[in-house]
Each structure stands twice: as C-alpha cells, then as structure tokens.
C-alpha cells in the first residue's frame, strides 16, 4: 500500500476540518469455529493494533469467543463488474466510491 492512497493521509492534505482523521478499517469476524470470517462493518483507528482493540470493543462488544481480522479499507482491491461507476472506472479497484480515497487538489470546488 502506498502512503498516498491511505484515506488518512489523503484527508490530511485536504482541508483543516478533516485533519487528523484516523484511517478507516474494515472488520471481519469469525462468529464461531468452523465459519468464515465475515465482514461486519468498519471503524476508525490510528493503526492496526488499535484497530484490533476497537474491533473487539465495537463489534464483539463483550467477552464473546471470536476471531477478528482488520484491514485498512484503502488496502482492499475490489472488482465488481456489476457495479458500474464511470467516475473512478480507470482506477476502479477500491471498495467504496469514496472521494477521500483519492487525492483531489484543494482548489477544486465542491469536493
């Protein structure tokens, strides 16, 4: 993963309002043994270890026997031919149609 595509750093360079935003992580939980990890949602964390802590607190609330995976949203490469988005088609490999995943010059209005 290159630093420039991380949402955190992209946001940091954008506007003062979003400076210091923790990057977005996707959370996968194995509900019980024998099952696959399943995507349950996302959260913010400053780094991988904090993301694991947060995932445990937020998505498995208390004490359950589970296994967690976390991964930075910006590290996921996506392919979904069915979801057509011309805006980002040339680099359409991100999980979200998510403007902050892309460096946009500060002087572009309404972004």
């Amino acid at each position: 993963m290159s630093a420039e595509t991380s949402p955190g750093s992209a946001a940091a360079g954008k506007t003062p309002a979003t400076r210091g935003e923790w990057p977005l992580y996707e959370v996968f939980v194995r509900g019980k043994r024998g099952l696959n990890h399943v995507h349950v949602g996302s959260l913010h964390a400053a780094d991988d270890q904090m993301a694991i802590h947060h995932a445990r607190d937020v998505y498995t609330r208390r004490n359950e026997g589970v296994s967690l995976w976390v991964v930075r949203s910006s590290s996921i490469t996506a392919s979904s031919p069915d979801e057509k988005d011309p805006m980002f088609a040339p680099s359409g490999d991100k999980v979200y149609r998510h403007p902050t995943f892309y460096d946009i010059p500060a002087d572009v209005p309404h972004m």
Partner: peptide
C-alpha cells in the same frame, strides 16, 4: 494518484 473523470465513456 490522479482521478480520471471520463464520463464520455459511459
């Protein structure tokens, strides 16, 4: 990384 907006393709 630059965003390419190429609406004409669609």
């Amino acid at each position: 990384m630059t965003t390419q907006i190429n609406e004409n393709q669609f």
